[in-house]
Computed example of a mutant assay.
Amino acid sequence: MIRNGKASVAIALVCTVAGAGLVGCEEASSADSKPSASATTDGAGADDKGSFTGTEKIKVDGRSVNVSCSGDQAKGKPVVVLLHGGGDGLDKLAGLQKTLGEKDRACSYDRLGAGASDQPDGPQTLESGGKVLTAVIDRVAGDAPVVLAGHSLGGLIAARYAPDHQDKVKGLVLMDATSPTQSADLEKEIPESATGMAVELREQTLAVLRGESPEKLVVPDGEVRSAGDIPVEVIQHGKQYLAAVPQYGAGLERAWAKGQEKWLAVSGGSRLSTAENSEHYIYVDEPDLAVGAIRRVASQAAGTA
């Protein structure tokens, strides 16, 4: 966001920490406790899959991945796997995970280059990042199905992953997910001739999408592919804070809204709603709304709605 007297503008586009005072990830409440248990295992070889609570390190292709779980697995219900935004980590999701864990099994993980996980060896792709997510799901869910709930860049990752893993992913919740055409949206709405806040936002966000961030994750634009008719809730922000970007803000808000509509194509069972009192961090601004959506999708995925 941009501070110092100007309107706060989070780079919801990817949600990442950038230079020149631009910060896309706001500080969430730290009042919620994090799980205290800790262990290190080889996720691929664990024979007690889905059983641990607290935090644990698993090995994926020789890299250490930090994973956290809350709550017990109920027979017939999916495990909720939370995916953080760019520049964040699983600690940001601790409060949401704790609440979800009161009724369901909920887990999260730090992607390579984030939080307490190892740094990536080199540039990451959505495919290589998907292998890490598969290993996490295998560890925390075992044979149970999963619902993926992602925020910002985590939402994009979840929606890109689901079509190739329809045997496992039975529901999605996309909380202000990064647009599937984010680079093109930015280049259209903010021309190279722009100056000041707008050009900084444009260039730094495009750099992140090219992999110039701690995660080194390259995120190309692409068509939305179908994951079948699984239940999907797409939730967009209602407080139009991007409109505060001088000259180009209104266009950014329109492009963002269109991006949320594009994600509806991921399933024949998609539903779009607006968190009227939220900026980018919907699960922080309106936690009850986020929890309700995730529980609703989990119930539908279990066939109990």
Rank of each mutant, 00 (worst) to 15 (best):
M1Y: 09
N4C: 08
L13Q: 14
V14G: 07
T16D: 10
V17D: 09
G19E: 10
S29G: 13
D32F: 14
K34W: 12
P35G: 12
S38E: 12
A39D: 12
D42E: 11
D42C: 09
D42F: 07
A44V: 06
G54W: 08
T55L: 03
E56K: 15
V65S: 04
G76F: 06
V79R: 04
V79Y: 01
V81D: 00
Q97C: 05
Q97S: 07
K98G: 07
E102T: 15
E127I: 11
K131W: 01
A144V: 04
L153K: 05
L153G: 01
G154M: 04
A158T: 07
Q166M: 14
K168H: 02
L172I: 11
A177Q: 03
A177G: 02
T181E: 10
S183Y: 00
L186K: 06
K188S: 14
I190L: 06
E203M: 13
R210C: 01
P220K: 13
D229T: 13
Q236K: 14
K239V: 15
L242S: 00
A243G: 10
P246Y: 03
Q247I: 13
A250K: 15
G251A: 06
A255I: 07
G259E: 04
G268K: 15
S273G: 08
E276L: 12
E286D: 14
R295L: 12
A298N: 05
